[in-house]
Design a protein around this nucleic acid. Structure first.
Lengths: 199, 199, 199, 199
DNA sequence: GGCTAAGCGAGACGGTACGTCTAGTCTTGGG
DNA sequence: CCCAAGACTAGACGTACCGTCTCGCTTAGCC
């Protein structure tokens, strides 16, 4: 998460305002570089240079590489992984998983893997990753599960969290450990196995 | 995997033999340090020093930090996560998951997380992690699943890989993302959900 | 020398006038800081802060650290090093050297040393130091020397510049190189040696 | 003064020995750069680059810019400022002053000025400058003065230190403050003035 | 009272050098 | 051929100042 010195909701901004343009250019540079050279080889220097910005400007806004890439990732990934308004709750859930898997297959896969990996070494980043990425989606997912129960698509005693752990856990497991990205077929098989019982 | 320059099984060793003691001391040092300061802050220099060994001696045996820690990890984790000869195949599977979760709760959790994380940035390590850790266990697990099918504990069309992805995927997911290590209760809930259908 | 944008003596001042108070506060801050931390570690930022003034306000008035400290020094050192109206020209000269040495022993020593040192790296400062400090005093000194010649205290062919170089050169030499500040005794010995011949 | 870890006079050297060649290349680079760009603009980075050496190698041997340049200076200045075996002690002294003035007129002038200036901000450098440059020469100079007294060229009560302060002080004064380097004529005049009396 | 101009506090900005750190390699002497 | 020691190249790191700039606001003289 970006440095944001503004003490909540009050006093007018003082001093020269930060260039919004720089923000965008830095995020773009970070994104393109992390995709090209990977997270490890990504140097702050290189980001600054590509963004046409002084190194200090980057450090003024983000305390480290990880949070910068995190922001870049979130600013990049858009509504393509939203829960589609499907015919039924379960259908919506299933197709969101497919969308996520598709995103993982693309350049976003590298980003998620990098961030999740880096988060293992950085408590703050882990928190950010959890709250800003995982939990945000899970909140919606649990609503969908609740709807599914109401619609009798799921057994009334279904534990949403556990169900989602099995489904998404399997997906992330593949992302991190598999030799190939998760295909649509994988998602299908996983979905079938896990939901067979709960219907 | 350790460097082993000896061309397979032929000519007798020349020159001074490598100190076996050094190996042990290096692995121990690596282990204790990675637990103390974490993988990122772990410096080869520090390992060598704590092992009372020159840096070159470490590099002569392991090409880099990751494979060294990998070896240290594997040398440390013993039969405590073997599949127990239980009353039934499914029972054996279930209790192995519990053992694994327990290991994750201890200091081994940090190691697995570190290695899996680092593997995202290092193709060779990823391969090593997959082959020497994940697949080794999965091979056995799939045999157990096959036995379970024979014993009619599982439906005959059960796909072992998918089943194990759901089970272990859920577990690793928790390890990496959860704010607390996976408890026995989690394992139970996950097991129940996933196996309810397949019986 | 301070920035003074006002084109000589004409058009009335426009806009908000500069705070005179700020000037004083800045000079004071510079003085106290340079004595505390030395010239090298003296940051414009710190001066501004201690003066309770924005950094731009400092830069609006002085182009750089050196000239600011130069002004601070000159504003600080007062009539205590003026040529005393003594009983005779030579006596006046001698006692002024003593006064200067005494000033060098105090906090002014650090300032002169810093400025003279910095001047070696900065042509403009060197010029300023020469004109505003050295030559100002030397002009008077040469008049005194002339009087001394008239009074037959000095040989008629005495070269004032060379005489003063020997006297003040010896003093500055001590200031810069000596391990202790120049004592009254030093000044005496130097004076005696140099003037013995010229009488 | 260079870093020299060797504990006095014992144990054989361990580890890879430092490249003597690097020493030479670094000193040469420092010298040529300081003459080209001046002390202030002289960057360690640039020295390392020009010497074809890693930056760490420079820092391993010299703790900072000043001591490095000090060593470069001393390694550069050779016997050209030795006291010449002249016809008489006073003659020897006089001509050494001329030699020194000549050196000051050349590229060495910049170096001495830079070092003496920097020494005002750095106690260690000041000590080094004093001991390794000033005092070394003064020791010899005082011997010469003593000889001169024996030879009745100087009054028997002459204080060598004060005499040398007046002579060399005047010279350094010119070097630091003058707008032109000290000419032979200056040296002559100074010499005549100071020594007229003491004969 | 509104207009113009400059001062002012605050802080962003481009830039540059710093000195440190770690990785992984190389070069000694000695076993 | 191993080992300890430590020099070496390479390169990123995060920090510290510098001197400039860009805001919104204030303080003056002038029409």
């Amino acid at each position: 998460m970006k440095n944001d010195m503004s003490s909540s909701g009050s006093l007018p901004p003082r001093g020269r305002p930060r260039s919004q343009d720089a923000d965008i250019r830095i995020l773009k540079a970070a994104l393109s570089l992390v995709e090209r050279v990977g997270f490890k080889a990504l140097a702050m220097e290189a980001i600054a240079e590509q963004a046409g910005v002084a190194r200090t400007t980057v450090y003024r806004r983000w305390p480290n590489k990880a949070t910068l890439v995190m922001d870049a990732f979130l600013s990049d990934i858009g509504p393509e992984i939203e829960f589609p308004k499907g015919s039924s709750p379960m259908e919506s859930l299933r197709s969101q998983m497919s969308l996520l898997a598709r995103a993982f297959r693309g350049r976003r896969g590298v980003l998620v893997r990098s961030l999740l990996a880096e988060a293992q070494f950085d408590a703050e980043l882990k928190k950010a990753f959890l709250e800003r990425w995982i939990l945000k989606r899970r909140a919606t997912a649990k609503l969908v599960v609740a709807e599914a129960i109401v619609a009798k698509e799921l057994a009334p005693d279904t534990d949403g969290d556990v169900l989602l752990d099995a489904l998404y856990g399997g997906l992330y497991y593949w992302l991190l450990i598999g030799t190939t990205p998760p295909t649509e077929k994988h998602v299908q098989a996983l979905w079938n196995l896990v939901t067979k019982s709960t219907s």
